[in-house]
Deep mutational scan, measured.
Amino acid sequence: MGFKLLSKLLVYLTASIMAIASPLAFSVDSSGEYPTVSEIPVGEVRLYQIADGVWSHIATQSFDGAVYPSNGLIVRDGDELLLIDTAWGAKNTAALLAEIEKQIGLPVTRAVSTHFHDDRVGGVDVLRAAGVATYASPSTRRLAEVEGNEIPTHSLEGLSSSGDAVRFGPVELFYPGAAHSTDNLIVYVPSASVLYGGCAIYELSRTSAGNVADADLAEWPTSIERIQQHYPEAQFVIPGHGLPGGLDLLKHTTNVVKAHTNRSVVE
């Protein structure tokens, strides 16, 4: 069995187990497998329904001669939608809004960016022009300005110390501490036991640490421990890039980060 097929099978099995364990909360999309990078042309966006009122959005972007996937989250909030992270750029984010209108038909009224990198804030200006209120932590807003990236308009308070959590509509926002970046936030959907790890969490097929220019490698494993301790009931975990899975993604990420750190020390 090929690795790609095995990865998709694991996603399907995880979703099936969740649907059985929580039949009222989960209505997993039966329309197909989780979209992969090879299936999404740059400039297009796919939506994948995880649970009743919960979707991931998947886009792709060219970077350094390669094409990478990027995940975000959409959560229903009454007759409105909360968006977590842009679709990595203005063109993708405009396509995301169009796809949401086509498939869901509810307005996106608020959006949260989970850290300051372009795959999370690139497209904020498109959201703002569409009347979406954009939010991020003060740290993310400051770092985005320093980096020359787009800056969300509103500040999220109460997320300055490791372990801080605040309720934001249908989700809980959690600051686990520094990891992929010093400002990275985690998003949890309690009604569906869905954990969105953003770039602080890796997919299972990833074996290298990737972009760690703004990471705190020493603190990252401790931050992941905080996530595990705060959300032990999480059933569906979405990484910032690639295929979702279960809580095993947290341990896998820790292993990859520690291996990278150990290699760096040896070198």
Rank of each mutant, 00 (worst) to 15 (best):
D248P: 07
D248R: 07
L159R: 02
G198Q: 03
T253V: 02
T222R: 12
I224C: 03
H230C: 05
H260I: 09
S191H: 15
T114H: 00
P244S: 05
P221G: 10
T222C: 06
S205Y: 10
T140V: 03
A130L: 09
A129D: 13
V112T: 03
P232V: 08
L9C: 15
T261C: 06
W220V: 02
T36G: 12
K258H: 10
S181G: 02
P107F: 03
F3R: 07
I20L: 11
G169Y: 06
K102L: 12
E157T: 11
V187S: 03
L24F: 13
L97F: 02
V256A: 06
A66M: 12
I100M: 05
V75F: 03
T253E: 01
R141P: 04
A200Y: 06
S162D: 11
G210K: 06
G197P: 06
H57L: 03
V121K: 02
Y34V: 08
H260V: 11
A192W: 05
R167C: 07
V237G: 02
T254P: 05
H252S: 04
A179C: 04
L156V: 09
A98E: 12
G122Q: 12
V28E: 09
A136I: 03
K251Y: 13
T222W: 11
D125I: 05
G131M: 06
L217R: 05
N255T: 11
A87M: 00
A25Y: 11
K102V: 13
V132E: 02
E219W: 05
G105A: 12
P35M: 07
W220K: 00
Q49R: 14
I238H: 00
V124I: 10
A94C: 03
F174Q: 00
A59G: 11
E233G: 12
T261E: 13
A178F: 06
S56N: 15
A200P: 01
A59P: 05
P170W: 01
T253P: 01
L47H: 05
I227C: 02
F63V: 14
S193A: 13
Y231T: 02
E147K: 15
L97R: 00
T153I: 11
M1V: 06
D52K: 11
A192S: 10
A144S: 10
V124T: 10
G32I: 08
S264F: 09
D64M: 12
A94L: 14
H117R: 01
Q61P: 04
K258G: 11
H117D: 00
H230I: 09
S7Q: 10
P239Y: 01
V54R: 02
H57Q: 05
E172T: 04
G246I: 04
I74V: 09
S31R: 10
A90P: 13
V124K: 01
T109F: 08
S56L: 15
V132C: 02
P138N: 07
V124W: 03
V28P: 10
T60I: 09
F116Q: 00
I20G: 14
G105W: 04
N92R: 04
D183M: 01
A95W: 03
D79N: 11
I224K: 03
T182K: 13
D248T: 10
F3S: 11
Y202D: 06
Y135F: 11
I20A: 12
R167H: 11
D164N: 13
V237W: 03
P152C: 01
W55N: 02
I201N: 05
G2Q: 15
L143E: 05
A213L: 12
Y34H: 09
K102H: 13
L81D: 00
S193I: 06
S139V: 13
P35V: 07
I100D: 01
T261P: 15
P190H: 06
Y196K: 03
H117Y: 01
S155N: 14
I100L: 06
G169P: 05
G131R: 07
E203V: 06
A165K: 15
A19S: 15
W55G: 02
V75Y: 00
V121R: 02
V112M: 06
L73E: 01
G123D: 04
I186R: 01
A133E: 13
M18P: 07
L173R: 02
G197I: 02
A213P: 10
L5Q: 15
G2P: 12
L9H: 15
R110A: 13
P138T: 08
F168H: 00
G148Y: 06
T254G: 13
K4E: 09
E99K: 11
G177V: 04
L195Q: 00
S27M: 15
G72Q: 02
N71F: 00
V42L: 09
R142K: 14
A215F: 05
I17G: 14
G72R: 03
G43R: 06
Y12V: 10
A165V: 13
S27A: 15
W220E: 03
R76C: 05
S191K: 12
V42G: 10
S7P: 10
D64I: 08
A94H: 12
Q229Y: 09
R128P: 05
A215Q: 07
V194L: 09
A111F: 07
L81M: 07
I74Q: 01
Q235G: 08
V212S: 15
S7N: 10
P138H: 08
D79F: 08
A129E: 14
A19K: 15
S56K: 06
G32L: 10
A98C: 08
C199M: 03
L249C: 01
V266H: 11
R46N: 07
L13Y: 14
T253Q: 02
E101L: 07
V54M: 04
N92L: 01
G158F: 07
Q229E: 13
P244A: 06
N184P: 01
A178C: 04
Y68V: 11
I74T: 06
T36M: 10
L73F: 04
I84K: 00
G210P: 05
A51I: 06
E267L: 09
L249Y: 04
V75G: 02
I84H: 00
G72K: 03
P170Y: 01
T60P: 05
I40S: 07
H57N: 05
Q235N: 09
A19C: 14
A129F: 08
G53H: 09
Q228M: 14
S7T: 08
H154F: 13
H230K: 15
S56V: 15
V171G: 02
T93I: 03
T207I: 12
S264T: 14
D214Y: 07
Q228P: 07
D79H: 09
A19N: 15
G123S: 04
L217G: 04
G163K: 05
G197E: 03
G242V: 04
L83W: 02
I50S: 03
T254Q: 12
Y135G: 00
L185C: 03
V37R: 09
G148W: 04
Y12W: 11
P35S: 08
N211P: 09
L156Y: 01
A59M: 04
I224E: 03
S139W: 11
D119Q: 01
R120E: 01
S56Y: 15
D118W: 06
R263F: 12
Y34N: 07
P41Q: 11
L195K: 01
I84L: 10
S191V: 09
S161P: 05
L96P: 03
H117C: 00
Q228R: 11
H154K: 08
V45Y: 03
D119T: 01
P152N: 01
S30T: 13
D29E: 10
D214H: 12
N184Y: 04
D125F: 04
V194W: 00
N71E: 02
Y12Q: 10
P152Q: 00
A87F: 01
G177W: 04
T60K: 08
A66P: 07
A98V: 12
S30V: 13
A90W: 07
G105Q: 11
D216E: 09
P35K: 07
N255P: 06
A136S: 09
L9N: 15
S223R: 03
V28D: 10
V28W: 09
A66Q: 15
E39F: 09
Y196W: 04
R167M: 12
W55D: 02
G158N: 12
S161Q: 13
V132Y: 00
H252G: 02
L24Q: 13
G240A: 05
A111K: 00
V11L: 08
G43H: 08
A51V: 12
E39A: 13
S162L: 10
A21M: 14
Y231L: 03
A218K: 13
T60W: 07
R226D: 04
S181C: 03
R76V: 09
S193D: 14
L217V: 13
G210Y: 02
K251M: 13
W55S: 01
A200H: 05
E44G: 14
V187I: 09
S193N: 13
H117N: 01
I224L: 08
R206V: 15
A259G: 14
G53L: 06
G158Q: 08
S181N: 01
T36C: 07
V11P: 15
Q228E: 12
E99P: 01
S62V: 05
G158S: 08
P23Q: 10
G242T: 05
A200D: 02
